[in-house]
Amino acid sequence: MIEIASSLVRALQSGALYALMAIGLTLTLAILKIPNIAHAEYVTVGGYVSFYLINFAGFPLWQTVLPAFIFSGVVAVLSYLAVFRPLKTRKVSMFILMVASFAVSLIIRYSIYTIVAAANWGFGVKPKVVTNVVFRIAGIPITDILLMVLPITVVVTVTLYLFMIKTLQGKQMRAVADDPDLAVVSGINVDNVAVLTFFISGGLAGLAGAFWVVFTHAHPDIGLEALIRIIAASALGGFISYPGTLIGAFIVTLAENTVMDILNRNFGLSLALKPLMPMIITIVILVLRPAGITGLFSRQPRGRVAR
């Protein structure tokens, strides 16, 4: 029983991080119709910003969060201005945009590889700041990362939700998501909305990356590794739903930790099959509820993402 509870705690911890990563992917896809594979690289960028500040400037973890957010956000905006905006003005299909984002992810990832190799940082090293156990409940370790990440995720998601509902910019974003042509006709500057969307999504990915790099390690592939789980989380939200993505991220980590734990305990399934769990959960949920899990919670009409 304790083991199940401890796996739930682990699921909560990584679920919160995957949620922060996946929100951005959903935002760009829902608002701008850009399936941005390079989104995973913003996680790596944020991670390396945090890694650099911790190891070479002696910052504590919490102080690196904001720089990581801003830096990744700026990289995301730059990738929009340099690549996605020119392509958008040419009215290319969604999947051309996907291929372009694949190219962007190659450029970002291997630029990081170049920097890491040139600076002799080493691949897959642990940052100087490590996770620590703050206290234990019945032997289950509660780490400082969990205590930082959970509140931040809650605050960020609530703030972002209020931002989307209450503020003018948020309303503009939702208007663009519903009907870009109508938004233009109503005098909304779609370009500004796009820049803001990219900044927020990239920033959130970078924020998650700052924690992720301390939770795991600094390697130019950390984003790529997380990508398939980010996609799964976003898919569970039907690629358009904000709460759906959040719940999707927790379902993915729950499958990897708790479900895997139960299967291992009761059916002797090898732990090496752990990466299988998010995939199977994605297939099962999408086959049963093709529009994602959000249908369970909201009655909003769902826009069609793909043709």
Binding site: P86, A100, V104, L106, I107, Y110, Y113
Partner: peptide, 16 residues
Amino acid sequence: YLRWIIVGVLMLLILM
């Protein structure tokens, strides 16, 4: 690693 960056840039040029 420059090789991969060149691959990415070439792809983008063709797409643009």
